[in-house]
Amino acid sequence: MSIAYYPGCTLKTKGKNLEKSALAAMEVLGIDVEELPRWNCCGAVYSLADDDLIHVVAPVRDLVRVAERGQDTVITLCSMCYNTLARANDLMKNDEEKRKTINDFMDEEPDYSGEVRVVHLLDYLRDEYGWDKLKEKLKSPLNGMKVAPYYGCTLLRPKEVALDHPDRPVLMHEFLETLGADVVDFPNAMECCGSYQVLGNPDAAVEVSHEILSGAAEKGAEALALTCPLCDFNLGKRQDIILEKYEGASEVPIYYFTQLLAVALGVAPEECHFELNRDSAAQLLKDKNIISAVPA
């Protein structure tokens, strides 16, 4: 049976490069996923107020959609969606009282109690597919490319849903290593990009994003790999603001982890939609002879 796939809103517009490259890569790997025919926005951030359950309804509704199709696993690509769905699932599984309140409120949906398993493509590759098997499928490994793994917040925190150790993660390191890249460890790999503060305090987001990029550059990274469309926005799309504001700041190409996976598997660069990345992204892959030409 295929695995249910929950894309999340941004992957259908500005984060198309995350979705398209992932779907192409999963096809090569033989991972059979099927997008949920009906789903809603997960809410992006999990509610942190104990007495606020209404904001948990959205992700639970999506989990109900998976369960009612008889599927037991849902795979995500966006790390914010992963976090929100996984935490909501945890609550429904473990908190009897809140589960009842939410189920009663959603009287138009079948009851749910955390039966579905929420995974992210990264931990799926590590735990179920296996790095060794992935390595065998590579056609164009990222040899000679110095890539820094950027985890951000939502894959690692809080502990209940962390895909790895919150302070000493190796998941993305292993992933990039498997793809053949030279993995560049840097101290800001788990630091926040400013997240939604791009709305409330855009200057603050620019400042912390600058630190992340310069931290990676200082360690010799030629590029950054990440999983979250909001990180991609703060670090990638808004990098021009950083380059303008900070003297000596240098351009760092940003990739979704799935784009690197896809090109390493030999997927045509056109399918990875590099036009949604910084121009430097496709160019670097070309310079490293990982792709033969920058897509027009």
Partner: peptide
């Protein structure tokens, strides 16, 4: 639009 919480009161 982005303030929707998927409570479904509208459909009901």
């Amino acid at each position: 639009l982005f303030r929707c919480v998927a409570c479904n009161a509208c459909s009901k």
